[in-house]
Design a protein around this nucleic acid. Structure first.
Length: 667
DNA sequence: CGGTCTATAATTTTT
DNA sequence: TTATAGACCG
């Protein structure tokens, strides 16, 4: 463990404190991931078995990154035996073994938010009276909140009668479809531990050492889960930073980290305050902002990186000028230092703010990467194919079944489907089961009957094939798609050739992903589908990331770092956002600003506009109230007009020349 | 039923 | 400005 000497004293303490509860307060850029990975290596070195170590993260990305880094420190077989995953993946793993106690089958399907919404829409349409209206999105949020708040209580929350009815029905239908949603994964696992002491003990014994990353982002249920798992051995190490808690609006409880000792008594507490990322100026600015939050564990970041340039704060006339200024500033620095575009990030509060930037960057032909936007999985063809595969894995999942029952059209029309749904409701069976029943088939015309029988036979045949132990899933999937002529369907539904080609490529991509999956996993189709649902952020996973300026929201920027960071739109109403000025959410907005500041390694520029075009019309803006808290010792306020009137510097002129030549050359 | 029109509202989004 | 949902009409 010679590598231990690479760590600072606090980090070493955190790594070596293996027994009993441990709270690591890891400020931004203080080497948090390093501590966790080293701690895992240290535990193994001390003789702990890899199978007894559990490390939980929030995102798949974090889990993958951690696994990669641990793999460099420990033996390969050990690395494989570690349980290193997200909360939800851990719950899936546990529930695949235990869920039958709750009346589900172990091949349960996981509904993502789109599935949830589709189901809720269906239910609202079915049960609401004509004069009643309920926004499905609102209903989804109510249901999720109710499930999270009342998971101990069987009765739904006292919402409006329609919402309560939808809630009730929703839960019934999920169960009937042998499906669970994201909340259920946590709820059922916690309930499992609560209600079955022997099972709880089994898992407590399994995981002797538990680590939780980003603990400030855990919600109530995730805390419960950790409490149960760690109850016996108490070797629970949580790592996080209350100052970076920015997901309160999604149910994260900062209290979990602020009151850690209530749940795990007498923990060791280690503060990591030495920052390895930023200059002293940037940290000074960050400290001066976060200091104003009342409920927090005080920390003061410091670094040996030197003072660096002062943080620049600049008021610009309007949002167009803002975009202009930021981009030309980046262009200038890129040119002068011959830097790659990768080193620059522009950070904003709302996705809408990226628009102007994009327009400008496109016009100037500067490469950029826009982070965020959930797309791949919202594409119809991807959803369709996953629905097909889902039906092969769990044909009783009505939602997925109905999605594809007549796609491509195969002679099972709406009236037949309605009849089948009605029958299935009456007999409390799935639509698929209904289709198989002779009683139902007798109700149909001979032509429809043939179509239904053919479809049932098709599913049954492939279901069998998929279940073969040595089944090559991607080959089967491809064969299946060809047999139902999905490519044809795709072409028929596309207006342009271009669109069709694009969608076909998406299909190939998915099949390829399935093929890759099978090379590294033995969990079959069920496992693949779960992974697809639990890891939807797989847009550019395969593509090698090209060079470009990063455009990103404050939220999405957490955990990342860039040499040169521009925080834009620091205006009252945007950051802090108007919609968050109710109850105590101002703290979180401040933390958001803090997160933004601490992304910067070398330079930080903050802009705000005097006027901004909001919803089409210009409206005056005031500087964010947070700006006045910035320690003047680390900040330089620049007058925009002075810069604007400067003649173009040599660097800029050269840039323009180069661009022009490039343009001309291309013609 | 499906297309077009009009009113309305407008963060952030790990699983 | 723009996206979306509901109304409205052919």
């Amino acid at each position: 463990m010679a590598r231990l000497f690479d760590l600072n004293p606090e980090q070493q303490t955190a790594v070596k404190c293996t027994e009993g509860p441990l709270l690591v307060l890891a400020g931004a850029g203080t080497g948090k991931t390093r501590v966790i990975t080293m701690r895992i290596a240290y535990l193994l070195h001390q003789g702990a078995s890899a199978a007894s170590i559990l490390a939980v993260t929030f995102t798949n990305k974090a889990a993958n990154e951690m696994r990669a880094r641990v793999s460099q420190l420990v033996d390969k077989p050990d690395a494989k035996k570690l349980t290193l995953c997200t909360f939800h993946a851990l719950c899936v793993r546990i529930l695949r073994q235990e869920i039958e106690r709750f009346g589900y089958k172990s091949n349960f399907t996981i509904y993502d938010e789109a599935d949830q919404l589709a189901l809720i829409r269906k239910i609202i349409a079915r049960i609401s009276a004509t004069n009643e209206k309920l926004d499905p999105n609102l209903a989804k949020n109510l249901i999720s909140r109710a499930k999270n708040e009342h998971w101990r209580i069987k009765e739904p929350a006292g919402e409006s009668s329609l919402a309560a009815a939808v809630f009730h029905r929703y839960q019934e239908e999920l169960k009937a479809a042998n499906a669970v949603d994201f909340d259920d994964l946590l709820i059922l696992t916690v309930r499992l531990f609560e209600e079955y002491v022997d099972t709880a003990e089994k898992w407590q014994n399994r995981y002797r050492y538990i680590m939780v990353d980003e603990f400030q982002d855990t919600n109530r249920l995730q805390l419960e889960l950790v409490r149960y798992l760690g109850a016996k051995h108490q070797n629970v190490c949580v790592v996080g930073d209350d100052d970076q808690s920015i997901y309160g609006w999604r149910g994260a409880e900062v209290a979990n980290i602020l009151e850690f000792e209530h749940h795990f008594p007498k923990p060791a507490i280690v503060k990591l305050e030495q920052n390895y990322r930023s200059t002293a100026s940037i940290l000074g600015a960050a400290n001066s902002i976060i200091r104003h939050n009342p409920r927090r564990r005080p920390k003061t970041l410091w670094s040996r990186n030197g003072e660096g340039e002062k943080v620049v704060v600049l008021e610009v006339p309007d949002d167009h000028e803002e975009a202009n200024f930021v981009i030309s500033e980046i262009q200038k620095r890129q040119q002068i230092g011959n830097l790659s575009w990768n080193r620059f990030a522009i950070v904003f509060r709302m996705n809408a703010q990226s628009r102007l930037l994009e327009e400008n960057l496109r016009r100037l032909r500067i490469p950029y990467r826009l982070i965020g936007g959930r797309s791949f999985f919202e594409r119809r063809e991807v959803k369709d194919i996953l629905a097909y595969l889902s039906c092969l894995a769990n044909p009783n999942d009505d939602l997925n079944f109905l999605r594809i029952i007549n796609t491509p059209a195969r002679g099972i029309g709406n009236s037949t489907i309605e009849l089948a749904v009605a029958e299935s409701n009456q007999h409390q069976t799935s639509v698929y089961q209904t289709l198989l029943s002779p009683a139902f088939l007798d109700l149909l015309s001979s032509r429809t009957r043939t179509a239904v029988e053919k479809f049932a036979e098709l599913l049954d045949r492939y279901e069998t094939e998929v279940l073969q132990p040595l089944a090559n899933l991607s080959v089967i999937a491809q064969k299946f798609l060809d047999e139902i002529d999905y490519p044809g369907e795709l072409r028929r539904n596309c207006k342009t050739q271009e669109e069709a080609i694009n969608r076909e490529e998406n299909v190939r991509e998915l099949i390829r992903t399935l093929s890759d999956y099978q090379l590294r996993s033995n969990d079959g189709l069920i496992g693949f589908l779960a992974e697809m649902t639990l890891d939807q952020d797989r847009d550019d996973k395969n593509e090698d990331t090209p060079d470009g300026i990063t455009l990103i929201t404050f939220h999405a920027a957490k955990g990342l770092e860039f040499p040169h960071v521009f925080l834009i739109g620091l205006e009252e109403g945007i950051l802090p956002h108007d919609r968050s000025k109710v109850d105590g959410q101002l703290d979180e907005e401040r933390r958001l600003f803090y997160v933004g500041i601490t992304r910067a390694m070398e330079t930080l520029t903050v802009t705000h506009c005097a006027t901004r075009t909001k919803y089409g019309s210009p409206s005056p803006c005031h500087p964010s109230s947070f700006l006045k808290d910035l320690d003047p010792a680390h900040v330089e306020r620049i007058n925009y007009h002075v810069i604007a009137n400067q003649p173009a510097s040599e660097g800029t002129a050269r840039t323009h020349f180069a661009k022009m030549r490039e343009l001309l050359g291309g013609m």
